[in-house]
Amino acid sequence: MDNVIPIILGMAAVTYIPRLLPFLMLTNKEIPKRVDIFLKCIPVAAIGALIVPGVFNATPDMPVAGIAGILFALLFGLWKGGIIIPVIGAVVVTYSVLFFGA
């Protein structure tokens, strides 16, 4: 394709500017308490929506495999915490279900 590069640069600009503006506007400023609480609620709200419903279709050919992996991550996380073992474990569980289930 010929004229893709200008499109890519345009995409880069409209992706970067929204990522940048809050840093220029908010950092080192006094923020009203309400707004601060709102901003602190964003991570939990964002992660909830990033996980559900996508997670139920993480392995589209066989959704149960992905769900099994995620369940492992959830249970291990609740039991012992940590990030690396839940993530690698989830991949291993999903792999096993896909491998033996197919």
Binding site: I47, L50, I51, G54, V55, A58, T59, G66, G69, I70, F72, A73, L74, G77, G82, I83, P86, V87, G89, A90, V91, T94
Partner: peptide
């Protein structure tokens, strides 16, 4: 493909 979901959940 499940790694990113597992990551978000573990966080």
């Amino acid at each position: 493909g499940v790694a990113l979901y597992a990551l978000l959940l573990a966080i």
